[in-house]
Design a protein around this nucleic acid. Structure first.
Lengths: 217, 217
DNA sequence: ACCTGAACACCGTTCAAGT
DNA sequence: ACCTGAACACCGTTCAAGT
């Protein structure tokens, strides 16, 4: 993998100007979004910052603290999600869709938050918004909690499938050749091979859940 | 992390007996299941095998090939999933449940397969079994493909939430203290804090999907 | 207060050498 | 055919030393 490690950005132009923790997180975030978490090494980070490795340690502690800082930034962003729409179904659906697109924009960080057991904090704002919507249509207590989690699970899975599909055009889909030649339903096989179907699958599941949940306009 | 690396199993007792690729995968699988993918280093693997690092390389190539081998083993296991039950809904639900429990048993490997873009191959056998059941109740083509993917997505997400919950008892649940004290629906907050609810969430979503899909007994 | 290079114990991997 | 130790370039991290 020496080829991958050779790719790096121009170092930041600093003459004498000291680094800041913010700047470190900024550059680290760029590396993670562009090349994934594994690409974030302390040496590469310091190279991109135009500073010695040990300077980074002075400001942020260690690699773990850098990742924590990146996750914190993501959590801040989750607090801005708001419901839109006139009916309860619309507003609940809008929260789910907004959550999904926010997660899709910061894919690597979401995985990071998950690994570091920060998902609860990450989802809290949306959960509260969802709880408010459900309460407005008379859904409370354990029943509301169940709906809420089912929706959350649906969004997360959709994001994960999407992420995999983005990395590999054939992922989550099926190479038609793997199916036995005598399998009759060729239309089904063709549909499964369509990588663009994730939005549809998401909407389909979302409507099914809202219907099954008994939330009506 | 020197404490973690100090923990290792007794080396295999071999006098003269050569290692085999199978034995390497066996020991590697144990390490991954017990301590996660990151714990699988070539040196630890060779230590556990009672052999020099370079011997492992002679047999399996490199670390990547070891991980590939482990994923292949998981794929083999996925081919044994069979539907049971009398009605179509029962049989479809049984496939989903069986898939879920198989994935739960090999959590680390599932993540590995996902990262390595082997999910399509992993899910192929179940997809084919599901397609057969759906066909038996007149569901074909794009409609059947959609149901199939929705079910698959549901199972995966459930497994992922479960895995996170296993690692951290409060994960996916919400610390009640994070909610504003004046939030009225305390029962909802309490329900969200219950970590044992994942089976219920899975069944709830499964039934909702099957209902929304229009598959009836 | 902020930066630096040298050094440590760890990686994955290769190579030349043994039997 | 199978195993070995030495060596390489990479890690994260610490430390003593500079300004």
């Amino acid at each position: 993998m020496s080829a991958a490690s050779r790719v790096r950005s121009e170092p930041v132009d600093r003459d004498g100007r000291p680094v800041t923790a913010d700047e470190i997180l900024e550059v680290a975030g760029n590396i993670v979004e562009r090349h994934g978490v594994d690409a974030l090494t302390m040496r590469r980070l310091s190279d991109d910052l135009g500073v010695a490795v040990t300077s980074v340690y002075w400001h942020v502690g260690n690699r773990d603290a850098v990742l924590d800082g990146l996750v914190d930034r993501l959590l801040d962003r989750m607090e801005t999600i708001r419901a839109v729409g006139d009916t309860a179904v619309e507003r609940v659906a809008s929260l789910a869709r907004e959550l999904r697109s926010t997660l899709l924009e910061r894919q690597h960080l979401v995985g990071l938050a998950h690994e570091r057991d920060r998902s609860p904090a990450m989802f809290l704002p949306v959960q509260q918004a969802l709880a408010a919507e459900l309460a407005s249509v008379g859904k409370h207590g354990a029943e509301a909690a169940l709906m809420l989690r089912a929706l959350q699970v649906h969004v997360i899975s959709s994001v994960l499938m999407d992420r995999a599909a983005a990395r590999n055009a054939s992922h989550g889909t099926v190479d038609p050749d793997l199916w036995p030649a005598n399998f009759v339903d060729r239309e089904l096989v063709a549909a499964l091979a369509d990588p663009a179907a994730y939005d549809t699958v998401f909407e389909f599941g979302l409507i099914a859940l809202l219907g099954g949940l008994g939330v009506n306009d």
